[in-house]
Nucleic acid binder design. Structure first.
Lengths: 145, 145
DNA sequence: CAGGACTAATTTGACTATCAAATTAATCTT
DNA sequence: AAGATTAATTTGATAGTCAAATTAGTCCTG
């Protein structure tokens, strides 16, 4: 089996399962009520400061209407706080609650474990090659779409 | 910035955007009515022969109920054909129509271009390293979930 | 400074994807 | 032939998504 087939196979598998995999990782902890989508929103809001709906929606690549629904549920579950801006009362600022910040950090550990599992047993030179390949993949996506 | 952080960043980006990216690739062609999910079903049915619902559902990791809905829509759009098995009349065999096979091949080209973009400019030694890293990634997913 | 244009967010209506559980229909077993 | 099993579909519920309509607030211009 050549490298192209290998790569294709692994990438196809990732394409198909990446959400399922991440969902399982997210739900396997103490944060059973957090969906993969919820976690993406939590990651986008980020640890520090409060962001308005439009900018978070844009960085997630969804409409603000969609984000409103997601945030409704995250507020109800207690991960996110909603505050109307004082400067411009049209604007809604969203930020992570204490529980939200904890969930965020919990998920970061999943990412760290994943990276650890991959780079462990790879030499420095090999790590550099992997990085190079991933950057190429990223460029491919940016150039094509 | 160290290698772990870079790897994490690229992987997180992939995790977040991989479906959006593939969806755009699928819809950007002449097959505007094919969703990413539709394409996964088409890939699972495969070019040759007819497969029954249960086995396709299993290889997709969804329930047969879910697959029934997906196949309803694919049949309506003309990508998939449904035939009751003669040997066992409980069984439904699904296969790609001519249009379905064309869509499948069209999507394969996207995969090939992607692989090409990654492998190009990597030496043989580097390709071997990349393969090793991807096997690790795959193992991580299998062992953890 | 009032009316109109614009902007931010939410709501609404529609659709896709998903599951578990109930149902239907066919086959196998004893 | 009855009961158990199996394959697929249907049903009822939920999440995520968009486009378009709506609501509410701000800005601009005559």
């Amino acid at each position: 089996m050549n490298i192209n087939h290998m790569l294709n196979e692994v990438l196809v598998k990732l394409f198909r399962n990446i959400n399922i995999i991440e969902e399982r990782a997210i739900c396997s902890g103490e944060y059973k009520d957090v969906t993969a989508n919820d976690m993406h929103v939590i990651e986008a809001i980020d640890m520090e400061g409060a962001r308005n709906m439009t900018s978070v929606a844009r960085s997630l690549g969804v409409t603000t209407g969609t984000l409103t629904i997601s945030v409704n549920s995250l507020v109800k579950k207690g991960y996110v706080e909603r505050v109307r801006s004082e400067e411009d009362r049209r604007v809604v600022l969203i930020s992570l609650s204490e529980k939200g910040r904890k969930a965020y950090l919990h998920h970061q550990r999943f990412h760290e474990q994943m990276i650890e599992a991959i780079v462990t047993e790879l030499s420095m030179e090999e790590q550099v090659v992997l990085e190079k390949a991933l950057v190429k993949l990223d460029q491919f996506f940016h150039s094509s779409f």
